[in-house]
Design a protein around this nucleic acid. Structure first.
Lengths: 206, 206
DNA sequence: TAGATTGTTAATCGATTAACAATC
DNA sequence: TAGATTGTTAATCGATTAACAATC
């Protein structure tokens, strides 16, 4: 029943399913199975079926899953059956990389604007964007109705920027600064810190 | 007892503990508690004590944990009480960003070389690095004894590059290409894909 | 000593897997 | 029909939490 609370760990796997399915679609595949999907992702077939069954019956016994249909359904579940405008704060290497990144198309996102507080950067262009003054961050994103942000400023600025974003109506933050940020419970936050991933692997190296 | 198998989910939290502890150290703090650390990270104090107790007794009853001492111990556990050379493959926006990234120092890593297959890029400089021809990838990293790699090439090239890296002796891969890669069981792999993180959050937005 | 916090146990909670009836 | 794969249940497995004795 989709009325029950869905575990967050299940939500965390759906984007992986979606990415693999979209890859299969690019390979002109029409049908897949929980087994094939599981092999590609290193996840058990039973778990994939269980996860999907929390949201509905998307497959056919004896046949498997129709790839375009399952893509559509997962996109609806994750609310990426639309394009979300995203703001980037910080126009250094990471921020400019994100502003130019081609990988958001077909994933449900589009960078809409980029901010920095450095007077030397404000007004300059990155791709098609003009770097805006982060002094006006809250007001500008509120007017634009932006709900999603990526933080790419130095760690010392990250909490302040997060506060401004939340003040401006942002509901979800992807933080590239290598520091924990406090946000109210209704705000979503995720982190990207390559050192964290690397340290998780070195444990297994001699 | 440290002879028992440690759950991978615990290993995944240790880098977060380490990052927060290093932040506290920068704030000139000497002592912390499982409660304070938990509040900073949004993790229960009991879980932090349980995790650490899998590796030894690092605290003092009634007092808490000595920050420099606990940092040292976690660094030893994660094998980041040294500096690992890392290779970057792909000299596009992401790869060059990684080559210039200042955030690896004090975290146990140092970018040692960067490769690309584009003749227009080979020989050019990024920061202090000269972009090398990825035709020689396996041999060069084997000679240099490099065990860790970051992949920042297009998705269509990622599996091939991973195979070359493994052939060259790499044991841990951080993959920025938005695609699942197959590796043998003794190879560590981690993924960074901002769209995956964003999609995980949009589920909770209307 | 009194107060505080660890380390650890046992209980609870939640996630994963195995298995199979249903059914395409 | 025979073969295949889903959806779902129940069992297993593993992770988290609560609680408190130990002890600084």
């Amino acid at each position: 029943m989709s009325e029950n609370k869905i575990p967050d760990i299940v939500i965390g796997r759906l984007p992986l399913y979606l990415r693999s399915l979209q890859r299969m679609q690019q390979e002109n595949r029409i049908i897949t199975s929980s087994q094939e999907l599981g092999e590609r992702l290193g996840i058990s077939a039973a778990q994939i079926r269980k996860d999907l069954s929390l949201f509905g019956e998307f497959g056919k016994q004896g046949t498997g899953y129709n790839i375009p249909y399952l893509i559509e359904k997962i996109q609806q579940i994750l609310h990426v059956d639309r394009v979300w405008d995203v703001v980037v704060v910080g126009a250094g290497d990471i921020g400019s990389g994100l502003a130019r990144y081609q990988g958001f198309s077909n994933r449900g996102f589009r960078v809409a604007m980029i901010f920095d507080r450095d007077p030397l950067k404000i007004g300059a262009k990155i791709g098609n964007f003009i770097i805006q003054d982060s002094h006006n961050l809250s007001e500008t994103i509120r007017k634009a109705g932006i709900k999603i942000a990526m933080i790419a400023v130095p760690s010392s600025e990250a909490q302040t920027v997060a506060n401004q974003l939340i003040k401006g109506g942002v509901r979800a933050i992807l933080n590239y600064a290598p520091i924990s940020i406090s946000v109210p419970p209704h705000i979503q936050i995720q982190y990207i810190d390559p050192s964290i991933h690397l340290q998780r692997m070195t444990y297994y190296l001699e």
